[in-house]
Design a protein around this nucleic acid. Structure first.
Lengths: 330, 330
DNA sequence: CTGAAAGCGCTTACAG
DNA sequence: CTGAAAGCGCTTACAG
């Protein structure tokens, strides 16, 4: 039997509307009444029922956050940024994971809407762009992290992958490397191969030819990185450096090198991407491209908030500048 | 303008109640009517509003999960277990993190209740036991992971920490170690120092004296493990092995040894606890006590579900058996 | 097998 | 400054 507004009103000898006024900090109320109501609220331990409120206001102050996996610290850091920003603005962040199951991802999105989430922040590789556009059209505003879907209700936030990749490859070239392989994510759609563009662009800028065969694709995880590195090095033992899609793949590369008897960085330099907490756990410590993950999450939230307040404005993608962190692996 | 039941009813030429019946798969309805309503639902793209439903049924099918941090993969694995079990039973898992801020933790718990979560699963060190008991009394059933609060509405789930610690120390003694230090969590309240009991018990079982000074406390993170190891080894250079509170601290110990020029395992063996994904990333790979984290999460959910269905039953704590995984560090 | 009415706990114009 | 009434979108007895 939870305590309701009615209970408070009865006890305080005022109307429900008056209670509502003090709960919502509305000014048109005498101080005496306010104090009296406050006292009753306190003594009864009354808590407003958000569900009921949401039903009438059509706003829940809930933001849904859907990420593919919690396994990569990259995502948990982003989530933390979203949550911190959400807190500041009195929003609750509802974190859902799909565990890489596309079916589950879709289900999460729809559940979140059914529960009245005011908006969604999505990092999810498996959604089709068409589905996302339709979703944004029919339901709520969306902000996509790393995505790319043209729709007025969809905003975008991402690191400057291309710039980051150039930073990495420029550095490698500067260290004398000429045969630089790349580990790419098989799941990246052609429209979002930003890192590959950066890699190619940097190579060309230094007068080096781009060899498509030096790019090897696999899942963007440790095992994927390990397997891709083995294939790459078997085909092209002449490679002296590897630029990896993310830290996970870079760690896989480190493992592969270790198992293959190639010293890092002497025989094969490795550069990662993201600068997750794993980068300094691994030996050798990873040289990698740092992305401000919390800021990314924060900006995603802020973007969504803007859209919620100004539904008719369309915002250009926000692209955050990365930074090269030089450690031991290259 | 979302589509409501009323819209469907109007369009299908039936009452709202009839629509409700087909949406909720209630049997008392003719097949013809059902088909007609289904067709309208489909063409209108109707989705039930869970908020409205929850308001009347007083059940949301939402379970709140509160964890201290997402930084330790141990917690994300538990969360994954909870989520998987939740899915199977058509529950939505609302994951909240406090980022180690006690104030925020409390806020999460209360928000979750305000939004109508049917029950809560909590791993949170900073709640006082009294607060949790009062919370369970006034609001919803709770299951505590690693906790210990006697209250009929609170259930418990945890690995057998004491047994796991004995496994680790037995192994170390079996390998010839006699001077075995321990890294403990400063934040463990005296009632929950299960690993320390296991450590002491194993030592005594082998006729070895327990030296309180061989136990060093710090935060259960990498840096804490690093610092604690340095202090411990400075005071007791005679130690040849270290048993750590968790993998995070063990990784800190690895770092400390590396920086101190102590080879692992030759000069100092290290055993962790949890067997997170980090254990095989680190060099040397960590020998550690494996806990089935997903199962822990699953059981936490199942416990809660039981309680939701049978509020009057009180369940004994569930203690999951761990297992020693021998790798390179000991 | 089908429907009209009340109510879940709030907020929102609208009066006074 | 304060209150009575309607309504958010559903479900739940209760009739028929």
């Amino acid at each position: 039997m939870p305590v309701t507004m009615r209970d408070v009103a009865l006890q305080a000898g005022v109307s429900i509307k008056t209670v509502s006024r003090v709960v919502n900090h509305q000014p048109e109320i005498s101080d005496v009444t306010r104090q009296r109501v406050l006292a009753v609220i306190d003594s009864l331990g009354y808590r407003p029922n958000f569900l009921a409120r949401a039903l009438v206001t059509q706003r829940t102050q809930i933001i849904g956050l859907v990420v593919v996996t919690l396994d990569n610290p990259y995502f948990t850091d982003i989530a933390r940024g979203v949550q911190a920003a959400g807190r500041e603005h009195a929003y609750l962040i509802f974190l859902a994971t799909s565990d890489e199951d596309p079916h589950e991802e879709q289900h999460s999105l729809e559940s979140l809407v059914a529960y009245g989430a005011d908006g969604l922040i999505v990092y999810a590789t498996s959604y089709s762009d068409a589905y996302l556009a339709e979703f944004a059209e029919r339901f709520r505003p969306l902000v996509l992290i790393h995505g790319l879907v043209e729709h007025p209700n969809i905003s975008h936030v991402r690191p400057d992958f291309e710039g980051g990749a150039r930073l990495a490859v420029d550095y490698l070239v500067g260290r004398g490397h000429r045969a630089i392989g790349m580990l790419a994510n098989v799941e990246s759609p052609p429209t979002r191969r930003w890192r590959e563009h950066g890699y190619a662009r940097s190579l060309r800028a230094h007068g080096l030819a781009v060899q498509p065969d030096w790019i090897e694709r696999d899942l963007a995880k440790i095992d994927g990185g390990n397997a891709a590195t083995r294939r790459l090095l078997a085909r092209h033992p002449e490679l002296t450096a590897i630029f990896a899609y993310n830290d996970m793949m870079a760690i896989g590369a480190l493992k592969a090198c270790r198992e293959l008897g190639r010293r890092v960085p002497e025989d094969c330099a490795v550069v990662g991407f993201d600068d997750t907490l794993l980068a300094t756990i691994v030996i050798p410590n990873l040289t990698t491209v740092r992305v401000d993950k919390r800021e990314l999450g924060r900006q995603a939230f802020l973007r969504l908030l803007e859209k919620l307040h100004h539904p008719d404005v369309t915002y250009p993608p926000l692209v955050l500048p990365p930074e090269l962190v030089i450690r031991e692996s290259a």
